[in-house]
Amino acid sequence: MGSARKASLAAAVPLVILLALLSWKVVNRDEVEGAFAPSTLDGKRAPTLEGTTLDGAMYSLDNDRGSWVVVNFFATWCPPCVLEHPELIKFAQRHLATGDRRVVSVIFGGPQEAALARTFFDRNGGSWPVVIDPTGIVAVDYAVAKVPESILVAPSGFVYGKIRGGVTADALDAIISEAETMTGGS
């Protein structure tokens, strides 16, 4: 009886540890890697995205029609955003020559956030447009619930899906390639 109880305990301990690890992984999934999740925008025309970039230029999502666009909402104070940044650089550089897949970042907030973002890009690199959303309306229209979030806009200008949490270059390419296979490239 005693040995049976010890055996049960011995079996239960690793099981509990495994469950705890799995729970931790689920809870922190967004911190580690982004989750491709359904959103209210899926299949709809991408909301208007126009505005001034950190460089002072004007950006319009419509001008990127014909390419896949990763609309990335981020903040300099958010650790997963900092973690995903090198991956976005990798993704952008991978498609720089062809221009078939692009990145545009959006920051919401006032001049202070814009200044912090400018410093962040100067320090960490990244040459894609960073649109300032001072009113917050763009983030609302894209239903941003937590940064970082990346919305994948198809070449047709329609939203394909949303990734909640940090992204990786390989994951972005895999999702887009799969979408191209399913939709025939549009």
């Binding site: 903040a75 919401f108 907030g109 009113t135 917050g136 309306i137 941003v144 619930a145 940064v147």
Partner: peptide
């Protein structure tokens, strides 16, 4: 949308403040 049980007015989360700004 980010917090549980708080309204946009009550929350200090960046997303809530952003919604209020919008």
């Amino acid at each position: 949308p980010e917090c549980s049980g708080q309204s946009v007015a009550q929350s200090n989360a960046a997303v809530a403040q952003n919604i209020e700004r919008a």
